[in-house]
Amino acid sequence: MSKNIKLISIVLFTLFSFFILLKGLDKSNIYSPEIKESKVNFNFKAKYLFSEEEVFINELLNNEGMSLINIWASWCLPCRDEHLYLLNLKSLNKLSIIGINYKDDEKNAKQFLSELGNPYTNIITDPKGINSIELGAFGVPETYLIDNKSKLIIQKFIGPLDDEEFEKIIKIIK
């Protein structure tokens, strides 16, 4: 009798592991960073691009409504792809877009903007990449939709924006 119980429990346990591993296979082993709680606390001081002045990022999020924070760099190729979306969003006039210029050279950044247009309301610099880490970023490009009042991240977009994500932003800000 106890032999049967042993057998059954071992079989059940093996089956359990089997299904777990089977399901585990479906998950990508590349980390997909979906933050569960958006309560990312950030407030850091950074220098404006093209000026020597410094500002706390929370001061830029002072009006009602929402803001978009976009991390970009002139050396980042995918940033060029998503630039059109940002310009589009700007033309809607629904939210302010704050650019974080990631580990970039000011001259190149200037050229990048004059070439492709400037969607940003304000641009601050991040020469060492540490400001982006305060936001919980992994690299460039990354975009955050932020509620100005609560200073919480509503949505996080890793990598360049695409059609689907663009629609999503439009939907949220309307």
């Binding site: 960073p33 060492k128 540490i130 305060e134 992994f138 690299g139």
Partner: peptide, 22 residues
Amino acid sequence: LICQGQSVYDSQSDFALSMKIL
């Protein structure tokens, strides 16, 4: 986080370098 199975200490990626400064 952006590397495959490397620690921040071992990595020379942008992310890891910034992390060390931070």
